[in-house]
């Protein structure tokens, strides 16, 4: 029951903050709302026993990435007239309809009778407890996966970040 309350709390918070991101006209409000949404999602991750990811979400996403966003928004310092009018076109309507239809299909699938029910750990509290005891989602278990099973993608990711840093400098600097 407590999990249900927490889930709905975080879920509604995340959706509300996400809606703020989309519909706020000024990007600075959007950025701050996105930070909020990321915090709420981090709570959801904890409910899913993803403790390490939840912490990374706050440190990397809400911390580092969002600072970058805010920094760029401040740098550009867009005036009200520079933001431009919000235009409504037919294609935007088509896109929105397609997005809503996609959501409808996914929700119909997840909530409908076709969703597979025979999964092993579904709602079994004893399994939950056994998982938590085994350290599911903790630093040690996720670390083993990252450094033993996925060492090559891990290293490639570090390379990707390096390339991204260089690329960002080259693109943004204009003249070196």
């Amino acid at each position: 029951m407590a999990e249900a309350i927490l889930f709905y709390l975080f879920a509604i918070g995340a959706l509300a903050a996400g809606a703020q991101v989309i519909f706020r006209r000024n990007p600075i409000y959007g950025a701050l709302s996105l930070v909020g949404a990321l915090f709420f999602l981090s709570g959801i991750y904890v409910l899913l026993a993803a403790h390490l990811i939840a912490i990374l979400q706050i440190i990397v996403y809400a911390g580092a990435v969002m600072v970058l966003f805010v920094f760029v928004i401040m740098l550009l310092n867009l005036k009200e007239e520079e933001l431009g009018e919000q235009r409504i076109t037919v294609w935007k309507g088509v896109g929105l309809a397609a997005v809503v239809a996609s959501f409808g299909v996914i929700a119909w699938r997840a909530l409908g009778p076709a969703f597979p029910q025979g999964a092993l750990m579904q709602g079994d509290r004893r399994v939950d407890n056994a998982l938590l005891v085994a350290g599911f989602g903790g630093v040690k278990t996720v670390g083993r996966i990252l450094y033993l099973a996925s060492i090559l993608p891990f290293e490639v990711t570090s390379l990707l970040l390096l390339v991204a840093v260089v690329a960002a400098v080259v693109v943004a600097k204009g003249r070196i």
Binding site: T89, W91, K92, V94, G95, A98, V99, A101, S102, V105, I106, W108, R109
Partner: peptide
């Protein structure tokens, strides 16, 4: 050159694919 129009069409395609595969 309107990226958002491309995205709208892409979204249409995604919706169609989801319909085909999930429904």
């Amino acid at each position: 050159g309107d990226v958002q129009r491309y995205l709208a069409v892409t979204a249409l395609g995604v919706a169609a694919l989801l319909y085909v595969f999930l429904v």
